[in-house]
Design a protein around this nucleic acid. Structure first.
Lengths: 176, 176
DNA sequence: ACCGTCATGTAATCGGTTACATGATTCT
DNA sequence: AGAATCATGTAACCGATTACATGACGGT
């Protein structure tokens, strides 16, 4: 056992959620993720079954299996897992992400901006509103999630600004 | 032949570049991509060899192989390929991308904002400056690429604003 | 008792990443 | 002539996506 594996972003999502919960099944991870981190970094549920198993094989989490009934697997971070998570938190990397937005890619390759903008704009507006609502009801003690939300809000605002300018709303003054 | 395949974003990057160039080898695709689309949507060079082959198998591009010498493969879009590209350009989808920024993910899971911000900030500033320089030297006729650049600039500005606020530069007034 | 949805996984396929390898040019 | 870099791929592995499947539970 304890074969060496490479930790991916998915690994840290799992480790981060497990560290917060103490212990969880894959289904509980799915629930937790759905209302929090999945807003800006989603992981398909099949990965939330596969990844903890992978992490268990390498000693980053422990696995406890229910005896009777559903025989669900409960995972908890090990010392090693917590250490890996903490090390990851501490690496202040310079790596930048790419935008990787399919709409922008279409623009780049010559799509007509108008229709694209008119499709993207309301969707981004909805998401912006949703983020603001979540932020309003997010306790001040949850510092990390609140910061992530604020980042998301900033980018959604930028998207709205960008697409609005292309959607034929040129005449109107835009306010944030 | 002409087995059915699913077209991915990588497919459209290849098709889009081939449509612009008329014909190209994988290496030429790599060169073209490097200074243009790779700024916000990169594709590893091995995929620029694998993907045209895949597209050729499904009839989206044609393949012409050099006879003597290097026997390089030259690809060109077929009618089918151009039609697929155009159809993709016309789909004004509402799908939104996720932010998927590893720095934000770290914040979410409790990383200390200060060091992270001080690592991310100069990197984003450099990229912002690079984009602005590219835009300045990009001919006005290249509408799509210029729009994509402007989108990138907007988001980099937002990143700079966000990380600057966390980097301990609170006292100073920030101008765009 | 039945039906729908929630809960809990497994399987297969495939694209993407990483690493390796080698022939051609160019530079010193 | 030799070294370094450019040019041009191939191979292997592995994580992610998609689809499939089934047991439990709650409501009517």
């Amino acid at each position: 056992m304890s074969s060496e594996i490479q930790l991916t972003a998915t690994s840290y999502v799992v480790l981060g959620l497990l560290a917060a919960a103490g212990e969880a099944t894959s289904y509980e991870l799915k629930q937790m993720a759905a209302e929090s981190v999945a807003n800006f970094w989603s992981v398909p549920h099949s990965q939330l079954y596969a990844e903890p198993a992978r992490l268990a094989g390498a000693g980053y989490v422990s696995e406890r299996r229910e005896q009777g009934g559903r025989r669900r697997r409960h995972y908890a971070p090990t010392e090693r897992g917590l250490a890996a998570l903490e090390a990851w938190r501490l690496t202040a990397s310079e790596e930048l992400v790419e935008l990787r937005d399919a709409g922008i890619l279409r623009l780049f390759f010559g799509a007509d901006p108008g229709p694209l903008a008119r499709a993207q704009l309301p969707a981004h507006r909805r998401r912006l509103a949703a983020y603001q609502e979540i932020l309003a009801s997010c306790p001040a003690s949850m510092v990390g999630p609140r910061l992530a939300l604020e980042a998301g809000i900033g980018h959604e605002r930028e998207y709205v600004r960008f697409w609005a300018a292309l959607a034929g709303e040129q005449g109107e003054s835009e306010r944030g």
